[in-house]
Nucleic acid binder design. Structure first.
Lengths: 132, 132, 132, 132
DNA sequence: GTGGTCTAGACCACA
DNA sequence: GTGGTCTAGACCACG
């Protein structure tokens, strides 16, 4: 029910803004069914400390998630995952497609055949997950 | 020998900086064998006009390519693709891997099975190329 | 820890580009031990104002220093001197040699004897420092 | 009497403009007594070919030397070193000092003691001459 | 507040 | 013609 703060991970050195990593990370985990309606987020302060980032950054991500109808604010308590009716639970395909499109365009410019690109993706899927 | 200016394409609205798009585009085309040592780049001004961007933006990309040993300056003339010994022609896999890693990480967070992710990538590879 | 903006000085009229003067100046001060890992650079805007140059000029120098692994970016904060492992702290001899080589070549072309050239350098070392 | 074209050498890759290298090279050799009044320069065309540079570049250097009273034009013939009365034969010290000043300033910023700087210059004077 | 990106336009150095 | 440098000023993203 309560989501552990170490569920999240951000790459501070990444070109991807931290708040965006948090925002997208929550959306993906909801899509994956890992976070469910009513689950309690860590507090801004706690999460900021665990991730070693500025609380304002976490707060910004949370606010965006609230605006998107994904989180709900509760006076004096931590935010919770909103009921599905306030936001569309995105299909995994929809969330993943932008990254795949980018990779596909690059593969095309690199002159890679479909089989080569797919093989390469297959290999990468084997790697243990780490942040970039 | 002389590279046509319309070989390049940039998405001015993209989050990816224009100069970065140019930089990476050149690297990929070299990797693909489309650009070769000694090939002459368009002039900064010409390319800037064709792409409808500021010459300084193009100049910045060219300077970065020179710093990377990929382009060579010739006083009074346009820049040329440098000999391979000054810059390691990157393997396509090396250039593509970062984008695939990102997609793989997202697929993992989305709880997608390998087969689903590969199928999705396969579908996207069918789409006609367009910039983002 | 914080580096004072007036530590830097540039000669705007010099043939040496301003951004290059800044770049080399930082390298030399690191070599001299005057700047150390973790020291905070002035902000781009502050330094630009003190030097009475355009912020983009300072920014270009900083970017080059970052590319060289000498400075590190910190989102929302000023840049800092990077740990030595990312950039080789250059030996003073290495940094000074190019200028000495040039002088030596000229002395040779001028037909100066070693003693004359050394004497002349000794005299010049007495002059109070000023920019060119 | 006729100056051999291979007396000159330029570094096309240098930051120093080619025409400047030629201009200063002639001045230094006159100062050294290597070139004397009446000595015949190579033709623009010949020198350009030997150095593998654009004839306009050589021509520019020659014109500047003429403007400085150092060379004299002769209809249909190559230019010659002008008599000393039309230009000051510069003292070697005057011609060398700018480069030494630069080196001295850098040595200062590097925190080098006088003895270290002199020692380093002495070492460099031992190196066989090459262009930079 | 921080730095990043881009523009429009100028001037210079070089060939 | 080429690229390099700099300016003034705008807007954005991030924290």
């Amino acid at each position: 029910m309560k989501i552990a703060p170490d569920t999240f991970n951000v790459a501070v050195g990444s070109a991807e803004p931290i708040y965006r990593q948090l925002f997208d990370g929550v959306r993906r985990r909801i899509s994956a069914g890992q976070f469910r309606t009513g689950d309690e987020m860590p507090s801004v302060r706690e999460l900021a400390q665990v991730l070693a980032v500025n609380p304002m950054t976490v707060s910004k991500a949370f606010s965006m998630l609230e605006t998107a109808g994904i989180l709900q604010r509760r006076r004096g308590l931590t935010m919770v995952i909103a009921p599905a009716r306030t936001h569309r639970v995105e299909d995994a395909a929809v969330l993943l497609r932008p990254s795949l499109r980018r990779a596909a365009r690059e593969a095309r410019e690199l002159g890679l055949a479909r089989e080569q690109a797919l093989q390469l993706f297959n290999d990468v899927l084997d790697e243990p997950g780490s942040e970039t």
